[in-house]
């Protein structure tokens, strides 16, 4: 998994390429935590190029969202395929995250 980070106004967009799983989740976590340290409070994770996520990946998203909300911000998700949506529904995490159809919608939601 690799990630591309870009800034759109005051929103950090992280585009993932590959699966977000136990062996690489720390890269996403550390990148976002570093940006939070630098003042970022709004984050979009774009899953357009991700096939699946495991429980560790889901856990990192939960942890980062919690941290951002504590600071008055949020982490929102975009471009989930049908499998990813199923994972969020199974775990009921669809109730915890704002999930947008596209990156543009996610950006506009802030």
């Amino acid at each position: 998994m690799t990630l591309d980070a870009s800034t759109h106004g005051d929103v950090l967009v992280i585009a993932l390429h590959g699966q977000l799983i136990v062996g690489n989740r720390q890269a996403l976590k550390q990148r976002v935590l570093d940006d939070i340290e630098g003042g970022t409070r709004k984050v979009v994770v774009d899953f357009a190029n991700t096939g699946y996520i495991d429980s560790s990946g889901l856990g990192v998203l939960v942890s980062l969202a919690k941290r951002l909300r504590e600071l008055g911000g949020d982490l929102r998700l975009a471009n989930l395929n049908a499998d990813l949506r199923t994972l969020f529904e199974l775990t009921k995490l669809d109730s915890l995250f704002q999930i947008a159809e596209s990156r543009e919608q996610a950006l506009a939601s802030f």
């Binding site: 856990g59 939960v62 775990t91 109730s95 915890l96």
Partner: peptide
């Protein structure tokens, strides 16, 4: 069950649940 309100915001605890699902 990681879907209960008290566990939903935990980072861990979903692995076996997903395997079984």
């Amino acid at each position: 069950d990681p879907t209960t309100p008290e566990r939903l915001e935990r980072e861990d605890g979903r692995g076996l649940f997903l395997m079984r699902a």
